[in-house]
């Protein structure tokens, strides 16, 4: 039996996290089918069909699904769920929004935010904000699962040629309406979702010196974070705070500059894929979790870092 995965897209392009969900789904069962529901979204279906891990694409092209309203999307998924053992989506605001409606309609318990697939019915998921991991076994016949995208590698995008099958739209309840979407257009990516985060701590010594952090962040297209100490000292506003009482971030690359590594801070970033620490105190606790530690005076190291980065011309934007 196979897996039905619901693609996230903007009717033109596939959202990258879907690729991570596809690779997770393929760990549940090799027979991964992807539902692309949207309006004028044929190009997305083509994109998905090219993903080698995808065995079949279901395309439902209807104005009903233009804005992925959960009230409209969930009945479509439910109707197509018959042939599948697993219904899968990313555990982001897209998947979290509609999947429980599917699970309720199917009278099945959902397994949320899976970070590891042990077997088709057994999964690992974080609880207590990641302070514990629970291994859970679903005894339902049909399983609704959402995947934490950052815990899985994205599936390769090209080389496949899955068949695209059209499916019919279903009636919509007409009790909810999309009004508008305002995408955050900050010059830098959102701290919570950025691929790279550069954070500064009290070692920066002043708010002005955060310019050194900002310059690196601009170069790497990274978000700017800060330790609680830096926020408390007034160097930067508290919406930049990473840690237990601030934001929990899981970027591919986390660069901690002048941060000693108080445990409250570590709680907010220790799941990052690669951690870099730059600190002049070689004994700072941050080094105990850093993949790459540089024991140096940040006021020398950061300008040097920037000029090294400037030499590279391969940095992704």
């Amino acid at each position: 039996m196979s897996v039905l995965l619901i693609a996230e897209h903007n009717n033109k392009n596939l959202k990258p996290f879907t690729l991570n969900a596809i690779s997770a789904a393929s760990k549940i069962d090799a027979e991964v089918h992807v539902l692309v529901a949207g309006s004028g979204c044929e190009s997305v279906a083509k994109e998905v069909a090219a993903v080698p891990l995808v065995k079949k694409v279901l395309l439902c092209d209807s104005p009903n699904y233009q804005n992925y309203l959960p009230e409209n999307l969930a009945p479509l998924v439910t109707k197509n769920a018959d042939k599948y053992d697993h219904i899968v989506a990313s555990a982001n605001t897209f998947g979290k929004n509609f999947m429980p409606r599917v699970a309720a309609a199917l009278d099945t318990s959902q397994v949320s935010d899976v970070i590891k697939v042990n077997s088709p019915d057994t999964f690992v998921r974080p609880i207590y904000a990641g302070n514990a991991f629970a291994t859970v076994k679903s005894n339902d016949k049909k399983r609704c699962v959402t995947i934490r995208p950052t815990s899985f590698e994205p599936a390769p995008k090209t080389g496949g040629s899955a068949q695209v099958e059209k499916v019919d739209a279903v009636d919509v309840p007409n009790f909810s309406k999309f009004v508008k979407r305002e995408e955050t257009k900050s010059e830098r990516p959102e701290l919570g979702t950025a691929r790279i985060v550069v954070s500064g701590g009290r070692g920066l010594e002043s708010g002005e010196n955060f310019k050194l952090i900002n310059d690196i962040a601009d170069k790497l297209n990274a978000a700017v974070g800060a330790s609680r100490a830096a926020v408390d000292a007034g160097y930067i506003s508290n919406d930049h705070q990473v840690g237990q009482t601030g934001k929990v971030v899981v970027p591919d690359l986390y660069i901690a500059v002048g941060i000693s590594g108080a445990i409250q801070h570590l709680a907010g970033m220790k799941e990052s894929k690669i951690i870099v620490a730059i600190n002049k105190d070689g004994e700072a606790p941050i080094f105990s979790i850093a993949d790459y530690g540089l024991e140096a005076d940040l006021f020398k190291a950061l300008p040097e870092f920037l000029s090294e980065l400037n030499k590279l011309n391969t940095i992704q934007k």
Binding site: T122, A132, F133, A134, T135, V136, S138, N139, A290
Partner: peptide, 18 residues
């Protein structure tokens, strides 16, 4: 329907290189 098999502490991250 979902059985909790076990709860454990997240794996501790190890130090890398300097």
């Amino acid at each position: 329907r979902v059985q909790q098999l076990k709860v454990e502490e997240p794996p501790k991250r190890k130090a890398g290189i300097k």
